[in-house]
Amino acid sequence: MSGWSLFIDTFFRPDLVAQYLPAILKAVTITVQVAVLIVATGLASGLMLAVARSFGLRAVNLCIIIFADVFRTLPPLVLVLLVYFGLPNVGLTLPSFAVLWLVLSVVLSAFAEEILWAGILSVRRGQWEAARSTGLNFVQTLAYVVLPQAIRLTIPPLTNRSIVITKNVALGSVIGVPEILNVATTAQSFVGNCTPLTLGAICYVVLFIPVVLLGRWVETRFAWGRA
């Protein structure tokens, strides 16, 4: 067999492509669903935490800082395994899908809180003072004056962090979430050929290349310090 056909036979066997593509495409939809859920809940709760922090209540802020530090420090896979295998022992069994969603949302919210808080801090004092002097109260100032600027400033780091964390959906394969990697490795060990794994890897790349390019574009479009 020539080198090329050996390569095709190992990584792209057409009959296996045909056989496993539907299952892997179904896994793609699951991967996308989890990813979208994680970004939505993670960013929303991160924003809530950053807003809560701006009220300047000592005890609350201490809790938020500890929360953000802990979940920015721990490797996501450690958390996934700890929650997935630990909680059933205390009588709380969550489905693997929920564990993945919960853990990655919490991790993203920790990072999003820190980024948004840095954004809020970087809005100049004069903006606060001017808004308050026009008669807006604290909450209105925050909502209509400070946050829009802070969010605009932090779009690039938020986008990049969201990409890094949603790529961790692949960690779900370790606890049995039927995302792309899980389906691909199962098929690969079943047929004893690399083709399903190649398909899975390609699907992940096809899924994330546009997002990475979006991240690049956003970085130039909303560069720091332009607001």
Binding site: V169, L181, G200, A201, Y204, V205
Partner: peptide
């Protein structure tokens, strides 16, 4: 940057 490290 697009391919998740675990997949790689």
């Amino acid at each position: 940057r697009a391919i998740p490290p675990l997949v790689l």
